[in-house]
């Protein structure tokens, strides 16, 4: 992204209309994105939108979506925010750590790590 070639930046600008933040509620780097099953898919979706809808048929964290699209995370977020607004994906709401990671999860994680 450094250097004199403005190409990548212009492309990113085109993807987001220059927006730096997604529409609606902010979501975490590892919030789970899920394509809404059976939702009507507009014919004029850009390739990045299609790629997300395909990938997130299985619930997928935001960071993985960004890596898959090979796009910066905040650009990915704008794209995801747009898809959410269209009702095409759901994005997990932020929850305090105490609500998400309980003792059972800790045990599962420990067990999983030990058996790697």
């Amino acid at each position: 992204m450094t250097g004199d070639d403005p190409g990548p930046l212009i492309r990113l600008f085109g993807l987001t209309g220059g927006r730096a933040r997604p529409q609606g509620e902010m979501f975490d780097l590892v919030a789970i994105v899920t394509t809404v099953g059976g939702s009507y898919e507009p014919a004029d979706l850009i390739p990045e939108h299609r790629a997300v809808l395909w990938l997130c048929r299985r619930p997928t964290p935001v960071a993985d979506v960004a890596a898959h699209l090979k796009l910066p995370i905040n650009i990915t977020r704008v794209i995801l925010g747009d898809l959410r607004r269209e009702g095409l994906v759901t994005i997990e709401r932020p929850r305090p750590v105490a609500q998400t990671i309980d003792e059972r999860i800790y045990r599962e994680v420990l067990h999983g790590l030990r058996s790697l």
């Binding site: 529409q23 609606g24 509620e25 780097l29 590892v30 919030a31 789970i32 899920t34 809404v36 619930p59 964290p61 960071a63 959410r84 607004r85 009702g87 095409l88 994906v89 759901t90 994005i91 997990e92 709401r93 929850r95 998400t100 990671i101 999860i105 994680v109």
Partner: peptide
Amino acid sequence: MDYAASEPGTTAVASALAIKI
């Protein structure tokens, strides 16, 4: 603009969890 209140598709997905370290 704030669409948070009427945002479609923001229900929590409880079945999947990604934990950060």
